[in-house]
Amino acid sequence: MSVDFRDTITIAAPASVAGDIMKAVQEWPSWTASVSSAVRSSAGPLTVGETVVVTQPKLRPATWTVTKVDTGGFEWTSDSAPGIRNVGGHWATDNGDGTCTAELTLSFAGPLARIVTLLYSSLIRRYIRMEAEGLRKAAETAAQTS
């Protein structure tokens, strides 16, 4: 059984623009206050198997392993906390009118998932919303300047 969090937002930019911003994980601290640092194990385009150490305010650093990547975004997993497995999704889909819908997801599974999400659900929701709003602003700015 998993506990799932999800946020969607409409962005006035193509999915490829939002996807590129999401995949440049090392740049996240510049557009969302929910991430203090993101240190990649590789350079160049984000790739399956790559690890990223993400530090967020009020949380321990977590190591994420990229499991899927395409033009519209990526997915990664983390086993950084004992008794919990996380899956995070960051995807953008074109709406056919020059806009896209970004969907940010975070799932918690494992024996401690229910307890941790009870304690941190407010923070989790706040951080996902911060990421969605920051992504919207960054993608819309990038689309206007290109």
Rank of each mutant, 00 (worst) to 15 (best):
M1C: 09
V3E: 14
R6M: 07
T8S: 15
T8W: 03
I9F: 06
T10R: 15
A13H: 13
A13N: 11
S16T: 15
M22C: 10
M22K: 15
V25M: 13
Q26K: 15
E27G: 14
P29Q: 03
W31G: 04
A33L: 05
V35N: 00
S36K: 14
S37H: 04
S41Q: 04
S41F: 05
A43I: 12
P45H: 10
T51A: 03
V53P: 02
T55A: 14
P57M: 07
P57T: 09
L59R: 12
R60T: 15
T65E: 14
V66D: 02
V66K: 09
T67A: 03
G72E: 07
E75S: 09
E75F: 10
E75G: 00
W76C: 11
T77D: 04
S80A: 14
A81Y: 13
P82L: 02
N86H: 13
N86A: 12
N86R: 13
T93P: 01
D94V: 09
T101C: 06
L106S: 03
S107A: 15
F108Y: 15
F108G: 01
A109K: 11
G110H: 10
G110W: 10
P111E: 09
L112Y: 04
R114P: 00
V116P: 02
Y120T: 12
S121I: 00
L123S: 10
R125N: 13
R126D: 13
R126V: 04
Y127A: 03
M130I: 00
L135M: 05
L135H: 09
R136G: 00
A138R: 15
A138V: 03
A138D: 01
E140H: 12
